[in-house]
Design a protein around this nucleic acid. Structure first.
Lengths: 195, 195
DNA sequence: ACCTTGAATTGACTTATATCAAGCGCATTT
DNA sequence: AAATGCGCTTGATATAAGTCAATTCAAGGT
């Protein structure tokens, strides 16, 4: 399955280790392909996030809705990213987030219990998990710093230099929400930075 | 050493596993006690964060200084927390952060290479690391959501309910900076919420 | 006990960003 | 081709929070 090749490549590249035939067999047995059409939900607020998904193709957003009905995007996700509300996934608590496909989406999904098995039995998988956890910690630290210390314009510049492909893949109103801005403000920032 | 007892208790409690006498011996051999007076720096911007510290006693803040000279606190840390700029610690890059003792501080510190050894040889330690990594991911997700969706007042309420002891341990201007507010704004928020 | 320093408060004013509203272009549907 | 909806832009205005400045107060150093 070419679907699984993407996952295998990813695990091997991130972990720096090879997957054995048995490893691959185990992964194929317990990751289930799932397709979502654009606008469909991978997770809805209030539900428990039973599955973690590896994005093979497409994109998604993780967002909350506040009391005023405004949406706030916390994460934008593309190919080779993991899709889940980790709080709900780990703790089995109802999620405060929604995860929605922004383009037609193909994921390979699995449950927490199965992930535990992979961690136990597949060295490359557990090495990958460690690297990802480091990367997440670093990315979170950076994003938090950006949110706290940067002006709207600086956050946008920052996005351009760190995730330039986001601008191609996501509409501006989604980018604006991800940056914590109204669409109008982002539009004005772009206008000014052309000058 | 009563210092080490705090660390041992912490590891066993978080991991749910016991430390053997050998485990403890290994930890004691490679965690070095270090004391800092109030206002001293555990890490300075531009330096590489060679050590991770376990706080036995005291408190600290992790902050950046922006181009205008304004400080932004990203983290406030107390007993039984780990102290480090993880980006610099993992990647050995110069840190963009300062870590400063807010009270006289006692830590047990160790290097990245030694931590790798603990992870390899001490099951309780590696179990603890997994739990902490989950907790960090969850806490970061929450903090990010709060920063994006909440008003200043809501963030303060949120702090009161999640970390009430912060108000006892840290001065208000530090709390303000941690919440991304000016000290004046926090003062006004407190005044209003008494009403 | 005095002096200095810095934290917290309060008031007046400024600024960044949000909100509201209207119009335009573009794609999709019918 | 007309109609609908939606994303983006632009202008006018509102608002939350920051900045600047003055005052009080408590704590620490000498």
């Amino acid at each position: 399955m070419s679907n699984f090749e993407a996952l295998f490549d990813y695990i091997q590249e991130i972990s720096g280790k090879l997957l054995s035939a048995d490893d691959k067999y185990l992964l194929m047995a317990h990751f289930k392909p799932k397709k979502l059409r654009k606008r469909q939900y991978f997770l809805q607020e209030g539900d428990i996030c039973k599955y973690i998904g590896f994005i093979v193709k497409g994109s998604a957003r993780t967002f909350t809705v506040d009391e005023k009905g405004h949406e706030h995007i916390l994460k934008l996700s593309l190919e080779n990213w993991w899709l889940a509300d980790f709080e709900s996934f780990y703790l089995l608590t109802p999620s405060r987030f929604n995860i929605e496909a922004l383009e037609d989406l193909e994921v390979l999904q699995s449950t927490n219990a199965q992930i535990e098995e992979f961690l136990k039995h597949i060295p490359a998988f557990s090495a990958m998990a460690n690297v990802i956890s480091q990367n997440y910690t670093i990315a979170n630290q950076k994003r938090m710093q950006a949110a706290m210390s940067y002006t709207a314009e600086e956050r946008y510049e920052d996005l351009i230099s760190n995730y330039p492909h986001f601008l191609q893949r996501f509409p501006q109103n989604m980018i604006a929400s991800y940056l914590g801005l109204s669409p109008e403000t982002l539009s004005r920032i772009r206008k000014n930075s052309f000058k």
